[in-house]
Computed example of a mutant assay.
Amino acid sequence: MTAIDATDRAILRALQEDATLSSGALADRVSLSQPMTWRRVRRLEEAGILAGRRLDLDLAQLGFGVTVFLGVKLATRGRVALPDFERALGAIPEIQTVEHVLGLYDYRLRVVARDLADFERVLRRRIMTLPGVGDVEANVLLSEERRPGPL
């Protein structure tokens, strides 16, 4: 485990707020020189603490008006290799997240679709045809009050 100090935490907090900051702008925020800031960011990346940067897209603006959370229970007959199942899920672009969970279901999926008819198509033709799929429960997202953000 890599030790992080208050300056590392300040860098992580600033990047969580705006991952597009240049190393110079980030250096100004954390009161370090640009080279020192760059070295710290690089160390955090190499340690796997800073695992990447991404954009948050407005799905509705892109035409994806429906988000559905699926609980998927694998069938008990005919065991499915979990890595193969997860790889098959990863090949479906409408599935935004795949979470292997403990509880009533084996997997929790976040699926986006243009509308309910499009979701039904994805569910019937892509998800339900995967080997090993047993029970599926769908919950349609009505609103999202809090998105993942800074720790």
Results as ranks from 00 to 15, higher is better:
143 S>W: 07
89 L>I: 06
79 R>F: 07
59 L>W: 14
94 E>N: 13
48 G>M: 13
130 L>V: 05
86 E>M: 06
94 E>T: 01
109 L>K: 09
122 V>F: 11
96 Q>P: 03
130 L>R: 11
140 V>H: 03
18 D>M: 10
77 R>E: 12
57 L>S: 00
47 A>V: 10
93 P>I: 07
56 D>N: 04
98 V>A: 11
24 G>I: 09
20 T>M: 15
56 D>K: 10
100 H>D: 00
127 I>V: 12
82 L>P: 13
11 I>R: 00
63 G>Y: 12
73 K>P: 03
114 R>C: 11
65 G>E: 15
12 L>H: 03
72 V>R: 00
64 F>Q: 00
139 N>R: 06
46 E>N: 10
107 Y>W: 08
59 L>G: 02
58 D>E: 11
127 I>P: 04
53 R>W: 00
73 K>N: 06
148 P>V: 04
99 E>Q: 13
57 L>V: 08
40 R>E: 13
53 R>T: 03
9 R>P: 00
93 P>C: 11
99 E>Y: 12
97 T>R: 13
112 V>R: 05
63 G>F: 11
73 K>F: 00
94 E>C: 07
48 G>W: 06
15 L>I: 01
148 P>E: 11
144 E>P: 07
47 A>K: 07
26 L>S: 06
25 A>E: 14
45 E>H: 08
133 V>I: 11
135 D>Y: 06
61 Q>L: 14
52 G>P: 02
7 T>L: 11
8 D>R: 05
69 F>L: 03
99 E>T: 07
133 V>K: 03
27 A>E: 05
